[in-house]
Amino acid sequence: MTKTLKDIAAALHLDVRTGEHLLARTVTGGYAGDLLSDVLAHARKGSVWITLQTHTNIVAVASAKELCGIIVVNGRTPEEATLRKAGEEDIPIMVSTLSTYDVVCQLCEMGVKNGEGV
């Protein structure tokens, strides 16, 4: 069963900060990590990225890896510049008040599989 960003946003009560119009995207998997180099090396195209980084660089990484979107955890506020850049690059950014562990648990519950690989 395929899930879209919209499904996830609804199920996890995510606060969609940018890219509302892109939520029909299919989520092919999930990848969690806060080290950009790690995500650059290992996240698979089409995955949703779970991180607590809010720096503009996350948009560059998501764009380079063609990730479908970013979930920022722990209720952290993405920087203005990050949201602006995400708008330009068509990367939806959503915020959860939960921790990485709990967000991943809920995604797994929904059937979103491990998004590691090329």
């Binding site: 806060d34 080290l35 980084q53 809010t54 720096h55 660089n57 952290r76 506020t77």
Partner: peptide
């Protein structure tokens, strides 16, 4: 919270967020 002037290499060390 969230404001940081840390360079990228510091973020890769798990700090500067």
């Amino acid at each position: 919270p969230g404001y940081s002037t840390a360079p990228d290499w510091v973020r890769e060390l798990g700090f500067g967020a």
